[in-house]
Structures are given as C-alpha cells and as structure tokens.
Amino acid sequence: MIELNHVSKMYGNVVGVNDLTLEIPTGAFGLIGPNGSGKTTLINLLIGHFRPTLGTLRVFDCDPASDRRLLRRIGLCPASDVLYPNVSAIEWVTYQVRLHGIARTESRSLAETALETVGMTDAMHRPMGTYSLGMRQRTKIAQAIAHDPDLLILDEPYNGLDPVGRNDMTRLLKEWTDNGRGLIFASHVLQEIESVTSSFLLIHGGRLLASGTADEIESLLAETPQEICLVGNDVAKLIHRFADVDWVDAMDWNQTKDELRVSLREPMEFYDRIATWIRDDRLTISQLRTPNGNLEAVFESLLRRHRGEAP
C-alpha cells in the first residue's frame, strides 16, 4: 500500500520527517506520536501535498506528488476545520466528490449515502455554521469516504466527538478495514488507536521509533524496561527477593496501601520467577498490575531509549 525509502522532509533547517524507510501493506495502522512528532507532515507527503526533500515515496505504486489520479483512491480527513459556515453538508460533500471527476448526479447520491453512514441525514441540509464540533467532524469523515477510496487517512478523527460519536466512529473504521481497505489513523491518544487496530507506527521527532502488530507489541514490552505493581498483605516480604537480583533498578514500598512498585530492567526475568517466589514463600498477593497490552508502556519506554535515558 505504502512504500517509503529514506524519506526526509525539511522546512529550512527544521526536520519534519527524518529518514523514514518502511513498507506498509494494505490494512489498518495507527500513526502514533505526540504533537509535533511528524504525523501531519507524513500525511501531507502521502497525499502529495509535500514532496520529499530526500528519498522516494510510493502509494499504490504511484508517486503522489506527480500522479494526481492517485487522489481518487485516497480519502482524507484533516485535523483542521475546513468547512464553510453558509454551505450545507450535502452541498459541500457533493462538491468534494465532484472534484474526483464524478458526475453531478452520482456525486449527490454518494454524498447522501456517506452522510447517512456517519449519522448526519437529519442535518445534512442545514448550514454547517450551525453545527457542533462533533457534527462538523462527522461531515469531514463523510467527505473522506464518499468517493469510496481504497485508502482512508484520518488525522485526529475523534476530535469533538461525544461518547456515542466515538463508538459510532470506531464501528465505522472497523467495518472499513474488515472490507479489505486501507486505513492510516493518526492520533496522539493511544486508546483511540487501540480501539480500532493493534498495528501501529510510532514516530517521534520525525523518526520512526517502532512499528508492529499486537504480537510484536507484546514482544517489545517483554524486552523493554517497565514498572510493575504488586499489591497484597505480603508484598513487603518480596523486597529481599528483588534486592538479590541485578535486573531491578528501583523499588517503592507504600506500607499504607500494601503496594510495592518495582522498576524492571529485564521484565522477562521477573515473569519467569515471580510465581515461584510467591509459591515457595507462601505469600498472599492480591494484585499484579503490568503494562502488558498497553501501548503507553511501549511509547514511554521507547522515547526514553530514543533520548538516551534508558539502556
């Protein structure tokens, strides 16, 4: 679906993206990173709005900066608010579809279907200046999907949506990918990504720090320093066990809460031994909380490693 070969984008002396090399097959991928990490720059490269300063970029084996026909296969929902207050949703979405070279009558029909899909049927004839932020967001999604693209690129798509809208959006995106189409979903909120896909691209400072699937996330967690929390009447009796190994960086015992937090340099050593320790010492431990399955742990740990703060 997407191929980048040593792609960099410079804004004068500022690096937008830095030496990105990867291949992305058709599927759903979360583009994760803090604000200013390079997510929007990468999106602008994918749609041909920017040309790479260095390197080459292909989307569906086309150069997006030179082959404008490619835009027919891409649907974009930008983070910015690009709606017009005195124009109705049906007029605006119809116009966006016509820009892809589709006839007026068919464009109108496609626009109506897309607005119905995102729950905007009742309000589609009202001026968009009367819409709430969530309604405007739904309308932007409608114009992105109306021409039935092969790849949907969303930049912060949950912005302004209430809980019902978020649930509707998650269901829509899952159905989209279940139908075999591509999705690039940019967000700095990891829970939003996890609700749609377990495949992710993590960027920071314009660089790709990690990419992978759910299984690879678990592998990263197992190999990445992390903090675990043990709770129970006997957690203090584990302190001597941790003191005798060389893969524990720090411990913090809260006597009031019967809670022991342990920073692990080699988590797999801990997981291999903890059950044996509890059994042999006949301890009562009520909870063991770990970051497994949570991309936040990967994100924070890889950033520390990227900054040279962790081994």
Results as ranks from 00 to 15, higher is better:
1 M>N: 09
5 N>K: 13
8 S>E: 06
9 K>N: 08
10 M>I: 07
11 Y>S: 12
12 G>T: 07
15 V>L: 11
16 G>K: 05
18 N>F: 08
25 P>C: 07
26 T>Q: 10
27 G>W: 08
28 A>H: 03
29 F>T: 00
32 I>S: 02
34 P>T: 09
37 S>H: 04
38 G>Y: 04
43 I>P: 01
44 N>A: 14
44 N>G: 14
45 L>N: 02
46 L>P: 03
46 L>F: 14
51 R>F: 13
53 T>N: 10
55 G>H: 09
56 T>K: 12
56 T>R: 11
57 L>S: 04
57 L>G: 02
60 F>N: 01
61 D>C: 09
62 C>M: 15
66 S>N: 15
66 S>V: 11
71 L>G: 03
71 L>M: 15
74 I>Y: 04
77 C>I: 12
81 D>V: 05
83 L>T: 11
86 N>V: 14
89 A>Q: 05
90 I>L: 14
92 W>T: 07
98 R>G: 10
100 H>Y: 12
102 I>S: 09
102 I>R: 07
102 I>E: 13
104 R>W: 14
115 L>I: 02
119 G>Y: 05
119 G>P: 06
120 M>L: 13
124 M>D: 01
126 R>A: 15
131 Y>A: 07
133 L>M: 15
140 K>M: 12
141 I>F: 03
142 A>C: 12
143 Q>W: 06
144 A>I: 04
150 D>E: 14
151 L>H: 02
153 I>H: 00
154 L>G: 00
154 L>I: 02
158 Y>M: 12
164 V>Q: 11
167 N>H: 13
174 K>T: 11
177 T>W: 02
180 G>S: 01
183 L>R: 01
185 F>N: 02
187 S>C: 00
190 L>Y: 05
192 E>F: 00
195 S>F: 04
199 S>I: 01
201 L>M: 08
201 L>T: 01
206 G>S: 08
207 R>Y: 06
208 L>C: 03
209 L>Q: 02
209 L>T: 03
210 A>I: 00
212 G>Q: 01
213 T>F: 05
217 I>V: 10
220 L>D: 01
225 P>A: 04
226 Q>C: 09
231 V>K: 08
233 N>F: 15
236 A>I: 07
240 H>S: 12
241 R>K: 13
241 R>P: 00
242 F>Q: 00
244 D>P: 03
244 D>F: 10
244 D>C: 14
245 V>R: 13
246 D>H: 12
250 A>W: 06
252 D>G: 05
253 W>C: 03
255 Q>W: 07
255 Q>T: 11
256 T>Q: 12
257 K>S: 13
259 E>F: 04
264 L>T: 03
265 R>E: 11
265 R>P: 01
266 E>W: 07
268 M>E: 15
270 F>M: 04
270 F>P: 00
274 I>D: 03
274 I>G: 02
283 L>Q: 08
283 L>F: 09
284 T>M: 09
284 T>N: 08
285 I>K: 00
292 N>A: 15
297 A>C: 13
307 R>F: 14
